[in-house]
Structures are given as C-alpha cells and as structure tokens.
Write a protein that binds this DNA or RNA. Structure first.
Lengths: 115, 115
DNA sequence: TCGATGCAATGACGTTCGTCAATGGAAAGG
DNA sequence: CCTTTCCATTGACGAACGTCATTGCATCGA
C-alpha cells in the first residue's frame, strides 16, 4: 500500500508548526493586496507617522467603505493601529510587527525559528 | 458636491505605484497560506538546499496534487525554482527573491522606494 | 516495447475575498 | 435638539482561492 521510500530517506519533518504558519500566513495575507500595500506605503511616508482616513480615500481611488475594510484587515493582522482623536480617526504603522514579519522571511531560515 | 478639505490639506499621494503594488502583492499573497509557508520552511531547512516533491507530500498532509498546485503558485511568484533531474523534480528556494521581499517591508519605507 | 512510478494539469465544489451601496453611530456646530 | 460630517459595519454579488479526484505525460526498469 504505502509507496515505500523511492527517492529519499523521507525522514523529513516540517520545521514550521501549523499554528505558527497560520498566524504568519494571516499577516502575509494582509500584505497580499495592492490597495493595502499602497495604504501602508502612505502611512510609512507620512511625516508625522499617521494619517486621517479621509486623506486615504481620495488618492487610493476606493470607496470609503472599502478603505475602512482594508484598514480593518490590516488592524486585525496587527500591522496598523487606529486612534480616534476628536472627530477623526488616525492610523499609524506598527513598525515592530512589520520588522517581525521581515525577520520571518530571512532567506536562511524562513520562520523556522521564530525566537 | 465634493466634500472640500476638512481635516487635512489632502495634498497626499501614494508613494507606491499601482503596478509595483500589484507585483509585490502577488508575492506576498503567495506567502499568505500556511501550507506554502511550511513548504518554504522545509526548503529553507534542507541541508542540500533542495527537496524532491515526493518528500514534501507526506509531512504536509496534503495530496500530491495540492502540493503541486502550491509549488506552482510559489513558482509563479518567483519564490521557488523546480528542476527535473531524472525521474523526480527537485525544488529550491530563490533566496534573492525572498531577500527582495524582506527589503520591501522595511518598516521605514514599505516599498516606497524599490530601487 | 510494455508496465509501473512520480509530477503536472484539469475539472469540480465549497469557501473566502474585494468591492460597492446602504445603513448605523459617534462627534462637532448651530 | 437637530443637522452635518466622518468613520465603521452590514449585506450582496462576482471573482478568486484551496482542496480533492481524475487524467495526462514523462521517466525508469524489465
């Protein structure tokens, strides 16, 4: 039944655990959309480090509802943080989280050692 | 009709162009799946730097067809490279491509300057 | 040449995603 | 209090995704 060992010893295991992979995948999936990447680029380029939602809608060419949706996705992935200040909500990058993702795709490791 | 400038000067633009965002998004989207991340982790941990498909199927708990599909996605994203060697196909990481992605999410820039 | 083996490609099915229009809710001003 | 403005949420729809079963194709051994 089992197809025996044919090409390799087959003693291989998966360095990255399923749970860790799922969490990482959620974050990268949040980065896997052009609108969200452009959104992040705007936040990264903001001199003050934060931007009001009303200024994100126009340049992106998307509805306010759509932009809000993407901000929610980014927020749930821990990539951005929104703060209500009076009448408007200001969003800023979570640079630590972004740095963690960057480390996860270190070519030599690819998240095999999260710590 | 237009809602005038209310909270900000609104002179903002999007640092990351649509085309660049689309290409980057395709790559990150390829990373946005647990199976693919675990697949990459196996490739990254391989002593020889490459693994035969037949050794990827078992540990991942997915059908051969499914694994092949994910490898195709990763290949189209430029993250892995497959080479037929006799009877089997061996896959290896594209570490340069991975490094480029890592640089793209530099917290201070977020791909605003690709070069 | 023939059969067996391993990877890739295809079709199908259910789920998730991206988008918009419409609605809801909080905050400032008259 | 009522209106306006702005952001968040919901519902709906089409498109894309992840998975599997099946089929196709190339390779190796007899």
């Amino acid at each position: 039944m089992e197809q025996e060992v044919e090409c390799c010893p087959s003693g291989l295991s998966v360095p990255l655990a399923s749970d860790d992979a799922a969490e990482l995948a959620r974050a990268f999936d949040a980065l896997g959309d052009p609108v969200r990447l452009r959104l992040l680029s705007m936040l990264a380029a903001a001199p003050s480090g934060e931007i009001c939602v009303c200024d994100l809608v126009g340049p992106l060419g998307r509805t306010q509802g759509t932009v809000s949706h993407h901000l929610k996705v980014l927020g749930e992935a821990g990539l951005v943080h929104g703060e209500r200040r009076g009448k408007w909500v200001w969003y800023s990058l979570d640079r630590d989280r972004l740095a963690a993702l960057r480390d996860a795709i270190e070519p030599a490791r690819v998240a095999s050692e999260a710590g």
